[in-house]
Amino acid sequence: MSKFNFIKIFILALFLSSTNLVKAVEQNDPIKVNWSFKGLTGKFDRASLQRGFQVYKEVCSSCHSMQYLSYRNLGELGGPEFSEEEVKAIAASVEIEDGPDSQGEMFFRPGRPSDKFKSPYPNINASIAANGGAYPPDMSVLVKARPGGSNYIYSVLVGYEDPPSGMVLDDGVYYNKYMIGNKIKMSAPLTEGIVEYTDGTQPSVDQMAKDVTTFLSWAAEPELEERHRTGVKVIIYLILLTILVYLSMKKIWSRVDSEV
């Protein structure tokens, strides 16, 4: 019977993994980065998250919204963990439309930590119109919305190159080695020194790309650290319980002349 068991488990494993074989076509495999948040106990690099937020705020947020995040998330555990004052200051730096007030008028007020991130455009159509017909996708879950995840986002950011000879690109279209189809309607958003890091880190394109990708990965999975931590505990607990139940089972079944 054991041979039968083995074959079956093997085939099922194969079957499950086959779903991962579904890859997009004509695309370079993204660069593999050794992210600190991968693996069973992976955690975000706090400093990188804070720098990444700075890149998002100073560069990307002029085109890309992040509508499912609130400013308060920036101070929560497992995220950039800005202090309460910092979060208040970040929120207060934007003007939020609120209302209607008792007179029925809409009005502007400084942002509060409970507000959602302010979007750069009033709606999707406005963002498309302002970006030459391309929609700059909302960044809340962008990392989860691309097959290659964090590696892919990072690769796109550093993947700008001159187009291969013979390839003609329309105005406002750029060649990117890693973008699906190799054509992207976003000009290279990062250039050496486009932000000045407050912690003194050298703002190279590669550094900024890593930082902002880390930030976007957290934005897509703010629960990641807690998930990893809980997961390790749950699995250890289950393994111990399994052993206990196994021993009880052996004991109980020893009363009959049959194997388990």
Binding site: H228, T230, G231, V234, I235, I239, T242, V245
Partner: peptide, 13 residues
């Protein structure tokens, strides 16, 4: 329980 370990592996990791 063994099934739940696999299940938890997917859910958490």
């Amino acid at each position: 329980l063994m099934f739940m370990i696999v299940f938890a592996g997917f859910v958490f990791f």
